[in-house]
């Protein structure tokens, strides 16, 4: 083990304890650890993005690209220079055009992605369950497949209906539609709760593995420090 490795292990151990000190309360040690962390992360991300995006997309085509590539690189280059003016509050106005450009593309990507990537595939998948001619992984017989399919359909529909925003004026006796909505609401809540519960358990499992890993690290580190001391 080289000195660099030993120093690294000590640093990792110290930083782990500093972060864990947050369990007692917010304190300077925790602050120091996360400020180091934020700085390091930002540095890494910055270099990787420069290496993987800016150099190949903006610099290399200008130096060694064909005429067509150079022309194509000029527009993002210009917009990029304008965007850089956002660094200075005085010049920031020049950066409005590239920001508007980004927002326009972002809005379009969001809509396109939501319609073609979420809404349609999810609708299709829900309908496809009722194709009883092909069996799916977990259903051993058609009857069970149908029952599960119906539960999924009911769950999807009531969850979606739960979010209905509009409501009529409040009345003492709710109309039929309002009672129906209220019923949907209750059933939808059950499905939402189960989904959140499952996801929560999943996040917790991930966090627990992280905790086990960190505590193992601490125990191992202390063992490797304490055992030689005790044996000597």
């Amino acid at each position: 083990m080289s000195n660099l490795d030993i120093f690294g292990a000590i640093l990792g151990f110290a930083l782990t304890l500093m972060v864990f000190s947050y369990l007692i309360g917010d304190n300077p040690l925790f602050r120091v650890a996360i400020h180091i962390f934020i700085g390091v992360t930002a540095g890494f991300v910055c270099i990787i993005v420069i290496n993987n995006v800016l150099l190949p997309r903006m610099i290399v085509p200008l130096i060694s690209g064909s005429m067509e590539e150079r022309l194509l690189a000029i527009i993002p280059m210009l917009l990029g220079w304008l965007l850089l003016t956002k660094i200075s509050p005085r010049l920031a106005t020049f950066g409005n055009i590239p920001v508007a450009f980004l927002v326009g593309v972002a809005a379009a990507v969001a809509i396109g992605g939501a319609v073609l990537g979420t809404l349609f595939p999810q609708i299709n998948a829900t309908i496809a369950i009722f194709d009883l001619t092909t069996s799916r992984g977990f259903d051993t017989n058609k009857g069970l497949q149908l029952v599960n399919g119906i539960i999924i359909l009911v769950g999807t529909v009531t969850t979606l209906a739960y979010f209905h925003f509009g409501t009529g004026p409040q009345q003492a006796n709710p109309t039929g539609l309002q009672s129906l909505l209220r019923g949907f609401n209750q059933v939808g809540q059950v499905f939402i709760a189960i989904t959140f519960g499952f996801l929560f358990a999943g996040v917790y499992s991930a966090a627990m593995v992280a905790l086990v890993e960190r505590l193992s690290f601490i125990v191992d580190f202390l063992k490797s420090v304490l055992l030689p001391l005790l044996s000597s």
Binding site: S135, R136, A201, A206
Partner: peptide, 16 residues
């Protein structure tokens, strides 16, 4: 996948 993604990924596995 991380454990939390199971309900989201499993339907794609069960799909036909």
């Amino acid at each position: 996948i991380s454990a939390q993604l199971e309900p989201i990924i499993r339907p794609y596995y069960d799909a036909n």
